[in-house]
Design a protein around this nucleic acid. Structure first.
Lengths: 194, 194, 194, 194
DNA sequence: CGCTAATCGAGACGGTACGTCCCGTCTTGCC
DNA sequence: GGCAAGACGGGACGTACCGTCTCGATTAGCG
C-alpha cells in the first residue's frame, strides 16, 4: 500500500495552481480533453504532485468545480413553497446551462465507470444541496402545504429528475428554465383530469 | 474523400461476431473496459472492419444493445392509465437494473462528450420508446383521464426523470421498481396537501 | 508472452530512421543522454515501433553501431605475424579512440547490468572480430612463428586486454596507438630478462 | 554558492548506516537496482544527508566497497617474481569473481559516463593497488629478473588487461583463476616459437 | 468461369496519455 | 546547523489504445 502523504506538508501554491488550471482547461477545451499531463503542465507542476493528492483527473476537476461553486445556497422560505421552489429551481437550471454545467456533465459521465468518483460526487455535490432542499420541503410539509406521505427525498427526485433527463439525455440545449413554473404546478397538483 | 463502403458487400458473419463480442465484453468487463482492439480480437476480425462500419466503440455497443434488446414494446391499454403506466414502468426499471442497464449507463456517459453518439442514442433508443409512451398517454388524455394542458413529452419526463436520477446519479443500486406505483400516484394526484 | 511481431511487415524506412537517429544522438549528446523517447522523436517514429523491434535503447544503439561499422575486416597475412598484428591492432586502437569508441564504451557499460545486451554485444561485435584474429594467429602457429601451446583465444586476450584496460579503466585519453609495436614485442618475446 | 558542509559535524552513525545499506543493497539486488532513495530508506536516513556528502549513488557504493575491501595488500617478495605474481594475481582474480566483483563491474560501468567517478575509482581503487604491484615489479627488475626496458605500469596492464577483458566483456563467469600461472608464463617468456 | 475490385484478417504504424520510478532540490520541524 | 522525512518540479520509462495504413488472401458479382 502506498503510504498516505502528509497533508500538512502540502504546498498550497501548487494546490491552487492545479485547481485553477484544471477548471480553466475544462472550461476552455471541454472536460473530455482534460488530461493529467495537461493540468500538470498548465499548473507548472509535476504529474506526481497531482497523483499524490488525487486519484484521477476527474477528482481534480470535481474539487476545482466545488471550490469554484462555493457551498450550496439556502432555499428561501417566504411561506409559499410553490414560489420558493420555482425561483430556486430556475436558478439551478440556469447554472446547469452554463459552461460549468457542461463540466459537470463530464463528471457525471466519468462517474458511471468510477464508483469512487460517483461516491465523491454525491457526497460533495449532491447530498449537501439535496439536504437543503429537503429541509425547506420538510418545513412546507409541517406548514401543511404538502402531503405528509411523500418523503422529501422523493420530492427532490421528482423535481430534479426531469432536469437531469434533459441535461444528460435529451441534450443540454433542451434545458429550459422558463418552464419551471409549469413543472412545479404539475408536480404539486398532479396531472390527473379533475 | 473516402468513398462510403457499399453495405451490400458487408460480411454478415463479421457483423454478427462484432456485435456479439462487443456486448459480451461490455457485460463481462464493464463498458469502460471495452476497446475497439478488444472487440476486434474477440470477434476474430480486423480493426479496420469495425472502423469501416462504425465511428466508435460506443456506436458498436449501442447497435449491439439495440440488437439484443429488440424493438421497444407497446404500452398496454386496459383503459386504466395508472395501472398501465405502473406495470410498464416497473418492467423498464427492472430492465435498467440488470447488466444491460449498466452497459446503457456507459453509453449515456460516452454520449456526454460525443454529440453524434448522443444523437444516435436518442434516435435509436429513446425516441422510439418515448413515442410509444406518448401514444398511450395521448389516448388517456383523449379518454379524459389526464389534464389536457400537459404535453405528453413532459409527462414522460416527469415519470422517467427520477429513474434516471437514481440510475445515473444516486447509483444503480438505489433503483427500486417497488415504488413505481407510489411515484405514479404522486404524479397523477400531485403532492399538495388537500 | 508478447506475440513476436512479424518481421516481413517491418517498415524499412522507419528501421533506417531509427538507426540513424540513435547513432546521431549518441555521437552528438553522448551515449548516456540517449533515450528511447529522444530516438523516437528524432526519427519521427512512435515509441512503440522501437519497443516492437528492440528490447532497450542499448540494443538500438548496438545495431546502429554495427550497421555503421560494417563487418569486421580481415587481418592481413604478409607472412610476418608481428608486423601484421601491429598494423591491424593500431587501426583498431585508433578506431576505439574516436567518437564511435565512446559510444562503444557506453554499450559495454550498459552490458554490465544487462546480460541480454552483453550476449548480443559479444555475438555481434566481439566474436566475429575475434574469430578473424584467431584465424590469422592459427596460421602463424602453423607457420611455426608462434608457440603451439598457447590457445589463440588467449593470445587475442593478451593482446587486447591491455587496450580495454586503458579504454574502460584508465580513461580513453590514455589509449595510445603509438606503443602498439612495443606491446606486441613484449607479448611475443616475453618480459623476462635473458 | 552552497557553503561546503562541515565534516566535523558529520553524523557517524548515519555515515556507517549509509555505507552498510548501500553495499547490502548492491550485493542483494545488483548494482543497477541501487537508488539513492533506496539507500536512504534502508539506512533510515534522509536523502539530503546522502547528497550532502556524496555526489551520486556510485560515489556511495564506491566508498562502501573500499571501506569493505580494506586497503590494498602488499605483493609478497620471496625472490621469485613468477611465483609471487601468480599467487597474488590468483587471489585478485578470485576476489573479482565474487559478488564484490559484480558490484565493482557496476561502478566501472557508471564511470564510463561520469568522469568524476572514473577519477575517484582510479584514485581510490586502482592506483593504490597498481602502485604496490609496480613496487614489487621494480624490485624484480632491479634483481635482474625482468627486462629493464618495459615500464612497470605496462607490465601491470599486460598482466591484468586480460582479466578485465574477461570480467567486463566475455562475462564474469569466464574468469578463471586456474590459468593464472600459464598467463604469467606467456607474459614472462613470450609466445614466440623458439 | 474467370476477372477485378472491394472487403476481409492481421497487425505495423505515428501518436497521445497513462501511471510509475527516480532524480536532485527544497521545506519543515526535531534534536 | 545537521538531521529524518518527504513534498516538490521534472524527465523518462514501458504500456495501452487510438485511428490510419499497408499487406496478401478471400470473395463477391459482372462480363
Amino acid at each position: 500500500m502506498t503510504p498516505a502523504p502528509n497533508p500538512e506538508l502540502r504546498n498550497q501554491r501548487s494546490h491552487r495552481a492545479i485547481l485553477d488550471a484544471a477548471l480553466e482547461l475544462a472550461l476552455r477545451d471541454g472536460y473530455a480533453k482534460v488530461t493529467v499531463e495537461g493540468i500538470a503542465q498548465a499548473a507548472g507542476v509535476g504529474k506526481q504532485t497531482i497523483y499524490r493528492w488525487w486519484p484521477s483527473r476527474a477528482a481534480v476537476v470535481l474539487e476545482a468545480l466545488n471550490d469554484r461553486s462555493g457551498p450550496a445556497s439556502q432555499v428561501p422560505d417566504t411561506g409559499n413553497v410553490e414560489a420558493d421552489i420555482t425561483a430556486t429551481a430556475e436558478a439551478v437550471i440556469r447554472l446547469l446551462g452554463t459552461d460549468l454545467g457542461t463540466v459537470w456533465r463530464g463528471l457525471v459521465a466519468d462517474a458511471q465507470g468510477d464508483p469512487r468518483l460517483a461516491e465523491d460526487l454525491r457526497r460533495t455535490f449532491f447530498e449537501p444541496r439535496m439536504a437543503l432542499w429537503r429541509e425547506r420541503l420538510q418545513a412546507a410539509v409541517e406548514a401543511g402545504e404538502l402531503r405528509t406521505d411523500v418523503p422529501t427525498r422523493t420530492i427532490v427526485e421528482l423535481l430534479f429528475g426531469p432536469v437531469y433527463h434533459r441535461l444528460l439525455i435529451m441534450g443540454p440545449d433542451t434545458l429550459d428554465p422558463e418552464n419551471t413554473a409549469a413543472r412545479v404546478d404539475y408536480l404539486l397538483n398532479g396531472i390527473r383530469k379533475r
